[in-house]
Every structure is written in C-alpha cells, then in structure tokens.
C-alpha cells in the first residue's frame, strides 16, 4: 500500500523528463532483456530465502512447540528450550531502542534542522556514514572496554544493550535524516509564516510527518541487531543461563548465542534445536518488520496535506 503511494508520487517529481520518450523505448529487445535480468535479480534472493527457511523449518519441525519456547536450556536436547534467550533478546531490543532512538533522532534533528552547513558539519556527516560501515565486532570491543570495564557495568544486559545501541546509532541517524528530508521545505515555511517558532514547527509539523520514516528505519535496524552475535560474545553474554533477567544489571544470554552453542555440539539432536532456534529468530525478525510496516501505514494516515 505504501509502496504504491510512493510510486504514484514519483512520476510527479520527475515531470521534467518527457513521457513520450519513455514509452517509445518499451518493447525492444534490450528492454526485455533488462526486464528479465531485473526479475531474476529479485527471484534469486527470494528463492534463496525460501530454500533456507524451508530447510531449517523441515529440520526444526519436530521441536517447534510451546515447550521449546517456555523451557530452560538442558543437557538433554529434547527437553532444552530457549526461554532465557528469548527473554534476553527481547529485553536487549527494548533497552537498545530506548537508548538509540532519542540519541539518534536528536543527532539527526541537529544535523538537519539546526547545524549550519560547513566544514565541521560535513566532517560529522562523513564520519557517521563511515561508522555505519564499521564491522560489528569493533563495536563489541569498544563496548567491552567502555561499558563493561571503564563504566563498570559488568557483563550485563545494560552493557549489551548500550553496545548494540552504539552499533545502531549511525543507522538510526541516517534513516532519521532521510525521513526529515522528505518533509517539504514549503511546509516548514508555511509554519514559520503562521508565526510558529522553530521548536513549534519541529514538534507540530516536522516530527509527526517524518515519524513513519524514522520508526521504519529504527525497527529495521533493530531487526538487524537481534541477529548480531559477535558484539554480544565480545562483551561476554553467557551461554547457559537458567533464569530470567531480574534487572538491567543481570547477566543474560541471547538467541544467536544459544543457536551458536547448539550448532557446535556433537549430538545431532542439538542441531535440530539450533534449527528450531533459527526459525524462532526468523519469525521474530519478520514480526518486527511487519510491525514497522503497520506503524508506517498507520502513522501516514494521520498526515493531512
């Protein structure tokens, strides 16, 4: 639905290119070949995803049950479950979002709305885009030194979440800036013309309009973070935890770590558990992406031009 809205908006934006030229080139051989390549380009990753998901699902099927979700890990593969890992991952995501959203959105607001264009601003911008490309293990090492050791948070949930928040920050900043840029200048000027100051304009006009984009960006990056293993292993997430976290300083485990442990066990029954864990992780990711789409469409409906 939203995709349709976007494509509708595009031709209007590109009104400068003559439409008759576009129609004239359709139907020749080059165009058809290009079309076929494009279809292949979308079919290939989809096929890969289906095959991966399918093979994991077939292997995992006998273990997928309520008991698997609600049990603690065990030496007996058939009794082992992922409850602490599931709760750990959920708590991590919640804490990460709480930390990454305000800071990321704030940084984006400053860069887009307040900062004067200049050398320092472009230096900051360049660095943020570079940070988005830094491997996650580096963030893990930073988190280990900064949060675990210097700030003395220990190998706790809060240290893990802070590390993941750092990892997400550049992505949140970039997504938020993209979203802020989609708000037309004319609307801000209209708001100023009505006597609103910068803060009022931001709060009443800009933020509500860019929120769908911001939230989509945040949730998509959270969905990526839920699968992150390397930084969590570095800061010392545990493997066997047979209780639920009872505070932000509690030790924790997370889904990717539990899966990683089961995969490396000799007994094939644990590999089935790993497959089931992978399915749970994938479903969780799909759910989060689904929430992103729903939020975006619902928030969009509230915007009147």
């Amino acid at each position: 639905m939203t995709a349709a809205a976007e494509t509708e908006a595009e031709p209007a934006a590109r009104a400068s290119s003559p439409p008759d030229k576009l129609t004239a080139s359709s139907g020749n051989g080059v165009e058809r070949a290009f079309r076929a390549i494009c279809i292949l380009a979308i079919a290939l990753p989809l096929l890969l995803l289906v095959v991966l998901f399918g093979s994991a699902l077939v292997e995992a099927w006998p273990r997928l049950s309520w008991g698997f979700l609600s049990s603690y890990p065990s030496r007996k593969a058939i009794e082992a479950g992922i409850l602490p890992a599931l709760v750990g991952s959920a708590a991590l995501m919640g804490l990460t979002a709480v930390m990454a959203i305000p800071v990321g959105l704030g940084a984006a607001l400053y860069l887009e709305e307040y900062a004067k264009p200049g050398r320092i601003t472009s230096l900051i911008e360049l660095n943020i885009s570079n940070l988005a490309g830094v491997p996650s293990i580096i963030y893990g090492l930073l988190g280990l030194e900064l949060f675990v050791r210097i700030l003395d948070l220990g190998r706790s949930l809060i240290a893990g979440a802070a590390t993941l928040a750092l990892l997400l920050l550049p992505m949140v900043v970039m997504a938020s800036r993209e979203a802020l840029r989609t708000v037309p200048r004319s609307l801000r000027e209209a708001s100023f013309a009505l006597g609103a100051d910068r803060w009022q304009t931001l709060r009443r006009v800009v933020l509500p309009m860019c929120m769908p984009g911001v939230l989509t960006g945040v949730i998509l990056s959270l969905a990526r973070a839920i699968g992150e293993t390397a930084p969590l292993i570095t800061i010392g997430a545990l493997t066997y935890v047979a209780f639920l976290p009872d505070g932000v300083t509690s030790p924790f485990t997370a889904l990717p770590i539990q899966i990683f442990n089961w995969v490396s066990r000799p007994q094939p029954a644990f590999h089935v558990n790993a497959a089931a864990g992978i399915i749970v992780l994938l479903v969780l990711m799909l759910l989060m992406n689904g929430v992103a789409i729903i939020l975006r469409t619902r928030l969009r409906k509230r915007i009147y031009w």
Binding site: A91, L95, L157, L215, P245, D246, G247
Partner: peptide
C-alpha cells in the same frame, strides 16, 4: 509518536523489572 515511544520504554522497563 510520543505514545509509541512511551509504550516501547514501558515494555522494556517491564521486561527488566520482573523477577525477585
């Protein structure tokens, strides 16, 4: 938007506060 953020924050707080 404020409501969404508050919900996220509350659910996180709930998740980490349960237990003895």
């Amino acid at each position: 938007m404020a409501r969404t953020l508050a919900t996220l924050g509350l659910s996180a707080a709930f998740l980490v506060s349960c237990g003895s």
